[in-house]
Design a protein around this nucleic acid. Sequence first.
DNA 1: TAGAATCGGAACGGTTCCGAAACGAATCCG
DNA 2: CGGATTCGTTTCGGAACCGTTCCGATTCTA
Lengths: 126, 126
Amino acid sequence: MPVFLSQDDALALWREALCSSVRDDGPDLSARQMSILLTVYTLAPPHTVRGLSESLNISKPAVSRALDRLGTLGYIRRRRDDYDRRSVQIQRTVKGAVFLSEFADIVSRAGRELQSPTPFEAGVPS
Amino acid sequence: MPVFLSQDDALALWREALCSSVRDDGPDLSARQMSILLTVYTLAPPHTVRGLSESLNISKPAVSRALDRLGTLGYIRRRRDDYDRRSVQIQRTVKGAVFLSEFADIVSRAGRELQSPTPFEAGVPS
DNA sequence: TAGAATCGGAACGGTTCCGAAACGAATCCG
DNA sequence: CGGATTCGTTTCGGAACCGTTCCGATTCTA
């Protein structure tokens, strides 16, 4: 079901979740790295370097490097495709699933704690 | 008003919004950089390097460098505090407000489109 | 079977980031 | 006044990342 968020709520939700993750010493992933990780874990496989590169509009080497980083963190694994041995399939790991599960909790909690009154108007500088 | 999100919805919302931003060639901000930007724009001023460093559990030089990056993008501005000239106040800019407003729209749209269309749209092998 | 196309990744030079330590400037305090 | 403290920034060596280009391996195709 759809969820309707005002601009202020959207930013407050994002801030609360992101700051919580940062405060708890979560890995400092870039937007690209996080989007790759989420794509691999929430959309149907198979996931390849080329597919991620095209769907996210990122260069192939950038995807490859992001996978290096996510692999170092233990969040994904590369596996050669047996039917097309040029290809590599990106696979999920238990550690990555745990990380995203905890992250989802943080986002859920941030949503639950949303207050209606705008903390401060997102306006222009004085 | 609180918003209740299941784990799956939380991750789907985050993925859809983040991937949209990445696809549209949005700046590849790290979690730390984005959390600083959101804090400056959605919580009441004044914002200082030390305050951000403590509230986000990041080292002071890391905050200073993140502000360099956000300043280069034109999203924030530094301003010497006239009452304590050791301090620097982090100020908002029109460009930063525009960026966050557009980002909020992306998040809102992602929420609105939750669990509606095309569960298996991407990455289907040819 | 030979050539073209596709796959992921390595090499390259340049930029950005990290934490620790040290810094100048400004303020506080004894 | 003068020493201690606080503030933000700079420096350092080392690591990660960027896009471009190129490469070996594999598969497709004529």
